[in-house]
Design a protein around this nucleic acid. Structure first.
Lengths: 339, 339
DNA sequence: CTGAAAGCGCTTACAG
DNA sequence: CTGAAAGCGCTTACAG
């Protein structure tokens, strides 16, 4: 069998209590005793049994990351995994472990995750929006489960969540292009009514206003979320359009914008710049490499991790926040120097 | 405080032992007693404390999935997360939890994962190739840690691993196109010396041979892993090339092949078909949608999960296997009917 | 500064 | 079929 605290105590000729105190950095132990015990620990290559520690202390130090884990999700929603990485880094730096759960369960999707709280094998739940069903959300409140939902749930208003601030990203974009000296942007939006597109546009408008510029609706081109149709539409719209920079609401639009511009012999140049939101999925294959306003999903995950622990420390706080996490990835399609 | 087994025992007027036996489906308990206890369990809404159960039983029922979890990996290696999903599904169906760990540690990358074994908070390690450093691999053997590595490590030959069988996928591709009646394939390979490309090509050659066809080297076009250079090269090579189907070694090559064919006015048609390995990252934006030989990473992960449990059950087995998991995703660039 | 003892919430031989 | 008792490997008041 493995070495236990009793083996260490016996060999060091002290009590188990004393060994335990050394293990837990209890300041009451004398330097000499501490040294002696640490030597024995090293000699015996002793590692405390965490199952016993956690049981005795009544803590789990384990957080569930609950998300849709279905086939293909790695390709269709890589952002979710970027968030997961952020959660992982934050939790591990706080010495928590992260258990991944999908929507698995006998009685309802997500039951396994809920059960890990009920059985006290986890302290809290970080739930990706893709898994925040109404059923689960109701249980979170009913059973008073410490949780952070990534994405603003619409079901009810007493949940804890954080979400990206697309409006803030729009403001950031406007601010950046003004700083770079662009005067005449065109905003190529997604479908009208698309929540994210609308928020980015709204923020962009606000950002221009912050710089004293009234951004006119005639400088907005709406597209319809289809690649081919976007391309066709842009070929028409862009040729009669005067602008020094095209701000694309996402990378698919940017991809088609560049295609259309090439077709129109209006390739990216000193006079025609391009800025897009979101790297993924197309920005890496756009030629030339576009400048991107990217939402830092890793940081979003890290914030969720931090808030989870905050929630555990102070269960009564209601955490609800839009967090602005845009970062600029300088590419070849905008001036890099500020004028 | 939470309800414990003692509360249940008291209320049901039996001993803790008896309740425990009901909880563990011990057949010795009479139907009447069992029923009575289950009623109380439901009434009190009792859930056993898993920390106590695992401590008492001396098991963890927890597996670490160790991988590179750095920023951006979600976009650069989505396959890893697909594998992770497969591992998750398999482990959860076997009632294990899955702890995700990155290359975190004070003394060396991956120390946290190793420590979770040392501290008995996990039973075994499933290690993605991206995290299988020599240091970790040496520790696996030295400390006799139950493990499955996803990807064939080159360091030493006493490790347990599973890997994809790219040669098998090549055979599968050849077999499929023969079945569909193609007679004159051209194989567009990656760089000569690229391991995966070479294996797929080798398998393809073997698959043709299995059908009695000697596949000539003159029907191979090697590319160099650069997108633009591949495009330029293919524009030249393909125009003098007689073939009824182009077999592309990966989706980037397929993307450039289609571009080159379009440029040469040799678009995909009944006479010019295309089959590619790997959906990701380009197959979804290729027009028309290509037929793909896809390695089923989810299934790879599931197999790793199964083998991990097998290893736990029987610690002495040496698991080393190339597993063939190709699946055909029918697109618009090959005949679907078998002739 | 150190240790004896009780306790965390279960399981598991063992006896009856 | 059921229960008393010991045990899993720690922690933690408490006493000294």
């Amino acid at each position: 069998m493995a070495i236990t605290i009793s083996d260490v105590a016996r060999k060091a000729e002290v009590s188990k209590s004393t060994v335990s105190k050394v293990l837990n950095n209890n300041p009451s132990i004398s330097a000499a005793t501490k040294e002696k015990i640490n030597a024995v620990i090293k000699e015996l290559n002793y590692t405390p049994n965490l199952k016993a520690v956690r049981f005795a202390k009544g803590v789990s130090k384990n957080i569930i990351f609950l998300s849709n884990m279905n086939a293909n999700i790695a390709y269709s929603d890589p952002h979710m995994f970027d968030i997961m990485c952020g959660v992982y880094h934050e939790l591990s730096s706080l010495n928590y472990s992260m258990n991944v759960e999908g929507l698995t369960g006998m009685a309802f999707p997500g039951e396994r995750a809920i059960n890990s709280i009920r059985s006290r094998s986890a302290d809290g739940l970080i739930i990706h929006g893709s898994a925040a069903t109404q059923e689960i959300c109701n249980l979170l409140i009913k059973e008073n489960i410490p949780h952070i939902i990534i994405g603003h749930p619409v079901f009810r208003d007493d949940l804890c969540w954080i979400d990206t601030d697309h409006r803030g990203a729009g403001i950031h974009a406007a601010s950046h292009i003004c700083t770079c000296g662009y005067k005449n942007p065109v905003f190529i939006a997604g479908r009208q009514g698309d929540t994210i597109s609308d928020m980015r546009l709204d923020g962009f408008r606000q950002g221009m206003l912050n710089r004293g510029i009234h951004f006119k609706n005639t400088n907005i081109i709406y597209t319809d979320n289809g690649m081919d149709s976007t391309y066709e539409m842009l070929k028409k719209s862009l040729q009669n359009c005067k602008f020094d920079i095209a701000v694309c609401e996402n990378s698919t639009i940017a991809f088609e914008t560049v295609r259309a511009l090439k077709k129109l012999k209006m390739s990216i140049s000193d006079d025609i710049s391009l800025l897009t939101f979101d790297s993924h999925p197309f920005s890496e294959i756009i030629e030339p490499r576009p400048t991107v306003i990217e939402l830092n999903m890793l940081e979003l995950g890290a914030q969720a991790g931090r808030m989870m622990i905050q929630k555990l420390t102070n269960p009564s706080v209601l955490i609800q926040s839009y967090t602005s996490i845009p970062m600029l990835l300088q590419g070849e399609t905008t001036r890099s120097t500020i004028i």
